[in-house]
């Protein structure tokens, strides 16, 4: 199966690989997937508490090229967005941007889940309720 140019770009030059201090109150961490499934994504956001804007985003991913590209793209999109806007990122936007084939759609779903998990982690640290998201069939 041939990968799209954009997937190859992100795979070769992934953006925002790294680790933020997960104990920090303004850092939200989302860890999704499972080693048994061949995909584990950890996505972190650092939020400016005064403005609610995501200052920095980092990821580390165990998975195929599409999973790496999806998480790399997600961190790019997250930076500079408000937490509220970040919640609006839909996995299908990732699919379109990266031209993911149907068998790789789960990679984009995982990235969306990772964003939501990171935001929820941040919300809990800030004393807010966790948001409840619709269960989706992966």
């Amino acid at each position: 199966m041939a990968y799209s140019e954009k997937v190859l770009d992100h795979y070769t030059n992934p953006q925002n690989v790294g680790t933020l201090d997960k104990s920090s109150k303004n850092v939200g961490t989302g860890l999704v997937g499972a080693p048994e499934c061949g995909d584990v994504m950890r996505l972190q956001i650092e939020v400016d508490e005064a403005t609610g804007v995501i200052k920095d985003a980092k990821f580390k991913t165990f998975g195929c090229g599409s999973a790496i590209a999806s998480s790399s793209l997600a961190t790019e999109w997250l930076k500079g967005k408000s937490v509220e806007d970040a919640l609006k990122i839909d996995n299908m936007e990732i699919v379109e941007e990266l031209n993911l084939p149907p068998v790789k759609i789960h990679c984009s779903v995982l990235a969306e889940d990772a964003i939501k998990a990171a935001i929820n982690d941040y919300r809990v640290k800030q004393g807010m309720n966790q948001l409840v998201f619709e269960e989706r069939i992966h």
Binding site: V32, G33, A34, P35, V40, R42, K60, T61, H106, L110
Partner: peptide, 21 residues
């Protein structure tokens, strides 16, 4: 790889409750 980082930090990966999808 987040798993490699955990391994290097001595985190037991099998003890984590993974969300199976």
């Amino acid at each position: 790889s987040p798993l490699w980082e955990m391994f290097k930090e001595g985190v037991d990966i099998n003890a984590i409750e993974w969300a199976h999808h």
